[in-house]
């Protein structure tokens, strides 16, 4: 059976893509951010996932406002990145796993999450940048990647409580998949930031640090917020925290923190990284047996 080995959440600011393209990792502005990933790289080298499920939000590359699904799941064997209009280099295609995707879709819909299935789906920087950060060498990247998209653009947005349940249902779907695969769940975006309005530049360090702490052991603490409260506390685009909450929901075992990093600012954003280990009972037994 597939097992969930852990979860990682990271910021996905487009400027990171340009910094990678220009090789600015040791530039004084960028170094505190990129250095945070060294522990994640070590953890990934040790744990080597076979499959990555990436929970992110589209920013007007694949979905337009004519049709916006609340939850969408990729169901393809390959996903393309494309020109997003703001000068980011276009990434090479990403390999998917349509069979695993359909299993997740069937389990989600069977458990009352009526997702949109996407046999064709462009993935944007919110998907490509976290992968580039976690595996700077694309050749070492897991060969199967499944995109899961949450609407964080067009209100009404799904509530934090709903996103936690969505993640829990994804977690159970993964664990009911027969092949022996090690699965990593990634959530992208955030933390606090606001790009629009007179409140542009809003950052809330206290709330971010609170979220980073709660996400480890008590993600339920974040489900009491309404979306307007989340906008107020995290900023208009800080609601991308929903992707982190869904990621955390998928970790159904005993969860412990491996590493976190928090740095202000990257572009207009409070950047953060959280690496979590997931220890399902079954997995512990398997490791001992192996």
């Amino acid at each position: 059976m597939a097992t969930i080995i852990g979860g990682i959440a990271t910021t996905h600011v487009p400027a990171i893509g340009n910094a990678i393209a220009k090789g600015l990792q040791n530039d004084p502005y960028w170094k505190p951010f990129f250095d945070g990933f060294k522990s994640a790289h070590t953890w990934l080298e040790t744990n080597r996932p076979d499959v990555v499920v990436v929970v992110y939000n589209d920013h007007g590359l694949n979905f337009f406002l004519d049709k916006i699904p609340t939850f969408a799941v990729g169901a393809a064997d390959q996903y393309q990145h494309a020109d997003e209009g703001w000068g980011l280099p276009v990434s090479a295609p990403f390999p998917g796993d349509a069979e695993f995707s359909w299993h997740i879709i069937e389990q989600l819909v069977g458990n009352e999450f009526d997702v949109t299935s996407c046999q064709e789906m462009l993935v944007d920087h919110a998907f490509t940048i976290p992968l580039a950060l976690l595996w700077p060498d694309a050749a070492k990247r897991p060969t199967k990647i499944i995109p899961v998209e949450i609407n964080t653009v067009q209100h009404p947005l799904p509530t934090p409580a709903r996103c936690l349940k969505f993640g829990q249902t994804i977690g159970r779907a993964i664990e009911s998949y027969a092949p022996d695969l090690k699965v990593l769940v990634v959530g992208t975006g955030g933390l606090s930031h606001q790009l629009d309005g007179e409140r542009a530049g809003f950052i809330n360090k206290d709330f971010d640090l609170f979220c980073l702490e709660q996400l480890v052991k008590t993600p339920e603490a974040l489900t009491r917020y309404t979306i307007p409260q989340l906008v107020e506390l995290a900023g208009s685009q800080g609601v991308e925290l929903l992707n982190w909450i869904a990621m955390r929901g998928a970790l159904t075992g005993r969860v412990s923190k491996v590493h976190s990093n928090y740095h202000i600012p990257i572009s207009n954003t409070a950047s953060a990284l959280l690496v979590l280990d997931n220890h399902p009972a079954k997995q512990t037994e398997l490791r001992k047996a192996g």
């Binding site: 067009q154 209100h155 309005g197 007179e198 307007p228 409260q229 906008v231 107020e232 208009s236």
Partner: peptide
């Protein structure tokens, strides 16, 4: 409508869209 007003912030709801 969005009853929850946050200064300097527009909730991008159905009416805005």
């Amino acid at each position: 409508s969005s009853p929850h007003q946050i200064p300097g912030t527009t909730i991008f709801n159905g009416a805005e869209a």
